[in-house]
């Protein structure tokens, strides 16, 4: 299975994400934002955390319009898998691949600490290795993670079981405690917490491994 990790100017979790994919058994290709195509045979695209383009205009807005953005959109439209973490989640919403937006944290502060997440659905290629309702310790590090969506959109997410993760204790004002959401075809996940920072007990926990292990397992079956 092949993963591509995109790097924008200002990305700072790209290497961690590549290491997490590799640890789960993926072959990883690194892709630059000016590339106009993904490497041949890519199964999953990872959009990493960081501060792409300095968060200018809005978080993720410039990255969403970068040359590689069109290739990522085409990959998702073909039914390809994609995961956006933190700034990557913001990029995916700005691309329109995921609904809603990430607004400034309700407390206005940058929040950087480990939080408890609940696995809200196991019916996804990203969460199937977890148990329903399982609690995970995963770090967050963001200023704009306050997930916001209109009422109709929220009802739709709930009705279609597309909320992947929720916060056990809401750190940022997110609607319905949402920490991560899935696309309608369940093959695109955006989440603010950083599972790629929780894949090795040596560096503070391995609860994030399941995201990558789920994906590996799901794609082997697909």
């Amino acid at each position: 299975m092949k993963a591509a990790v995109v790097t924008f100017p200002g990305s700072n979790c790209d290497r961690d994400l590549a290491v997490a994919f590799e640890a789960a058994g993926f072959e990883v290709a690194r892709v630059w934002h000016k590339d106009t195509a993904l490497p041949v045979g890519v199964d999953v695209v990872g959009i990493p955390g960081g501060f792409s383009f300095g968060d200018y205009l809005r978080c993720g807005a410039i990255a969403a319009q970068s040359p590689i953005g069109a290739a990522v959109r085409a990959h998702a439209d073909r039914g390809g898998f994609a995961i956006g973490i933190c700034n990557g989640f913001q990029v995916l919403t700005e691309m329109g691949l995921l609904p809603g937006v990430l607004m400034r944290n309700a407390g206005l502060k940058f929040v950087c600490r480990s939080v408890m997440l609940k696995v809200a659905t196991t019916a996804s290629p990203f969460t199937q290795s977890y148990a329903a309702g399982q609690e995970l310790a995963i770090p967050i590090a963001h200023h704009d993670g306050n997930y916001t969506i209109d009422d109709a959109g929220l009802q739709r997410l709930k009705a279609e079981d597309r909320i992947a993760f929720t916060y056990a204790a809401n750190p940022n004002g997110s609607m319905a405690d949402i920490a991560g959401v899935l696309s309608a075809n369940r093959r695109v996940l955006g989440m603010m917490p950083h599972p790629e920072r929780a894949v090795d007990p040596v560096t503070g926990g391995a609860d994030g491994q399941g995201v990558f292990a789920s994906l590996m397992r799901g794609m082997a079956l697909a």
């Binding site: 809005r58 410039i62 319009q65 700005e94 609904p99 937006v101 209109d150």
Partner: peptide, 9 residues
């Protein structure tokens, strides 16, 4: 519509 505003919010 394309870039300067996010018309969701």
């Amino acid at each position: 519509e394309k870039l300067l505003a996010n018309t969701v919010i």
